[in-house]
């Protein structure tokens, strides 16, 4: 798919995020919007998938390690045809397949149940390791938050991914700089994420996480790296695409009301 079209898809994903959170009246818009361009590039260009056969053995795997960005994952899965798009309206409602955080046994296309931070990345390492052991070509992608990197298990998992030379694993860090309680640098400073991941044995690529061309180039580069995993450090803006949500921690976990939904959708036309 052409970059222009992927950009359109990212906008479409953002619209669905806003609509679904407006209906749900709770959820996480900020970190869902910041990852929309990355997800669009993964699902419309990078990954080997077959939405009509979600369990296809040769498919690549995506793990939403920052599980609170469930609306982002649900949007792209619905748009890709994994399930009926009308189901998005049921997000977070009793009886819905769309739980507040992704459930792999309820939603076609969800590869791992996530939500408790850091664990998704560890499971992604397990998937990649399994594919290596059985000499499979499947690639594994995980989307992490920067705040999520405060979890110790992230670094345990990083250590093991490098130790086992998992060049079939790509971690993408949605580096939007904010977490619920405020700026990551003020809540618990992460220092240099680039240096940290490098010293843990990753090939690190720094990009603008809203630039489709850069995202795709980085994913291509990751395919050429042998014997080590790749970390794409994607600088993003929390709430990207909706002016009144951009770069504001208070939109981490608050849903827009109907007026705000209308305003946001106008901006995302």
């Amino acid at each position: 798919m052409e970059n222009k079209l992927i950009e359109e898809k990212a906008k479409e994903i953002r619209r669905e995020i806003i609509k679904m959170l407006g209906e749900a009246k709770s959820g996480h818009p900020g970190g869902s919007l910041s990852g929309a361009d990355i997800i669009a590039a993964l699902y419309y260009k990078e990954m080997k998938l077959d939405p009509s056969n979600p369990k296809w053995e040769d498919r690549d795997r995506f793990v939403m390690s920052k599980g609170h960005a469930a609306p982002l994952l649900y949007s792209v899965l619905a748009l890709k045809g994994y399930f009926d798009i009308d189901i998005l309206k049921t997000l977070r409602k009793t009886g819905s397949i769309l739980q507040g955080h992704p459930d792999m046994n309820k939603v076609p296309g969800v590869e791992m149940s996530t939500g408790s931070l850091g664990q998704g990345f560890s499971t992604a390492v397990g998937m990649a390791l399994s594919f290596k052991i059985y000499s499979k070509e499947n690639r594994v992608y995980a989307l992490l938050g920067d705040g999520e990197c405060q979890e110790g298990i992230v670094w345990e998992a990083a250590m093991s991914a490098a130790h086992y030379n998992l060049d079939n694993l790509v971690a993408i860090l949605d580096n939007n700089g904010l977490q619920i309680d405020g700026k990551c640098s003020e809540v618990m400073c992460l220092g240099s994420l680039q240096n940290k991941w490098k010293s843990f044995g990753f090939h690190v690529i720094e990009i603008d996480g809203h630039n489709i061309e850069q995202i795709i180039k980085a994913l291509d580069e990751a395919r050429t790296i042998k014997d080590k995993p790749t970390l794409i450090l994607a600088k993003t803006i929390k709430g990207k695409g909706v002016s009144f949500m951009e770069d504001r921690a208070e939109w981490h976990g608050a849903a827009p009301n109907m007026d705000q939904v209308a305003l946001a959708l106008e901006e995302l036309k």
Partner: peptide, 22 residues
């Protein structure tokens, strides 16, 4: 697979392996 002294990752990696059908 030796995961080293990292029991949380031990369980996470095991979960990921199970998710691939092993």
């Amino acid at each position: 697979i030796n995961i080293g002294i990292a029991e949380q990752n031990l369980m996470g990696v095991a979960a990921g392996i199970a998710a691939t059908g092993k």
